[in-house]
Design a binder for these strands. Sequence first.
DNA 1: ATCCATTTGTGCGTATGTATG
DNA 2: CCATACATACGCACAAATGGA
Lengths: 259, 259
Amino acid sequence: MPPKYRQIAAELRDRIISGHFATGDRLPTEQRLMDDYGVSRNTVRLATALLVNEGLIERVPGRLGGMLVRAQLMLTYHASRAEMPHGLWPESDAWFGEVQAQGYQPSQRFEMRIAELPAELAERLGVEADSPAGLRRCIRMVNGQPSSLQDTWYPMDLCEQVPELLSPRDIPQGTTRLLAERGFPQPAVEDDLVAMMPAPEHVQLLNLAAGTPVLAFTRTGFAPSRPVRVSVTIFAGHLNRVVYTLGDADVIARHRDGQ
Amino acid sequence: MPPKYRQIAAELRDRIISGHFATGDRLPTEQRLMDDYGVSRNTVRLATALLVNEGLIERVPGRLGGMLVRAQLMLTYHASRAEMPHGLWPESDAWFGEVQAQGYQPSQRFEMRIAELPAELAERLGVEADSPAGLRRCIRMVNGQPSSLQDTWYPMDLCEQVPELLSPRDIPQGTTRLLAERGFPQPAVEDDLVAMMPAPEHVQLLNLAAGTPVLAFTRTGFAPSRPVRVSVTIFAGHLNRVVYTLGDADVIARHRDGQ
DNA sequence: ATCCATTTGTGCGTATGTATG
DNA sequence: CCATACATACGCACAAATGGA
């Protein structure tokens, strides 16, 4: 027989998944659970901590607080559509469009600075670790909630050839098109996706609840002569999914239309 | 000032990330941390629970147990290479090859059964929810450790046309080629990736430590006339990453060779 | 096979702090 | 200012797992 706290967690989990508790509902208070199950507060906390770590609930202190069932809002990001392969329109526009098409309210915030390239990213760009590079950071929000964090790095010599990259504001036509106009098209990209628990920095910037995993999405863009940029996007788990379409897209479109 | 348990967690986290503690090292015992920091055992457990949830350590009871720094082994899965677009070789062979090329020892286990399609997957296949379907499950292991879990669903009517799909053993030429030979090539696939905390079933099958996120990778394969299968692969986080190459792969290959 | 020592796992009770309405 | 809810922290006890004597 599993320990009490796991049994209690399992019961509550089932009631959440089955829809007995809906999004935004309050679970019974800790005191109530202590009485119902005849256990100590410690045991109740162990049980509910599991649910917090699974991302099913969040805890809110205060008079009208409690343990709330979290929303399972899901946003789709079409990785093979944006900026690939001929559709060279600005990625931020693509993102705005996708979010709005899904019925949500997008917004974003920009920052620009010069920073030292972490070793792992420097290798992808084929430059030395810790060399300086242009870093454009974009925090994207959906309905006011931080949703993803994108850091795009450009090698320093490229920034000198294309000084607009150092602009602290959004670049209207998009950096990908800007680079293409200056002789650095990106006919190929390599993406790399991994699920991980967020670093403390990401928890803060994305306002993540404990137990929320993130999807780290790294895209390296290649000009014919060299890699020109690497973007690291941290997607808040649960809130985002990334979609790729490979092969003959018409086949899929035909099927969708047929439905 | 942050609470004590967070301070203690932060110190230990820094020492792990900075390499002061290496993979496999034991952290000080709970008793030792109580003495060092002058706190109760409860506080030590709160602190170390954070690190467990971040996937940094695992706890092992027993005489020579302790809190061990977890390995950060990383395996790469080339999603756009296996079985796409002309290279129609068996996916399991592709996986074996990739793992071996990275210096690890692959193995896998098969199961086959008929089961009811979950609503979400039924929609992708364009059939009714809860209708029966052929389910092929493959548990893949690296160096004996469960690494990923793949469930592939085939609509029932397709299984009747291609009865080998119901074979409980591995299909030598691979199911994708088998289907192509029987008139169901897959010129297009759609992939869908999301980071999530594992369901209890996944925790058990993949032998996951608490706090390990997973990458759920869903691939829908389309024949010209219809979708023919949907595969759901659960990758244990930390252990796996998924890579896509989009556009002109030669551009990337040239750059690699040039290094 | 038994017993013992060590380390984490589970559970109890209590007290005080903090956030919110 | 109060009431309610979760947050942090102390202390204690016994169970379970593991490895060695």
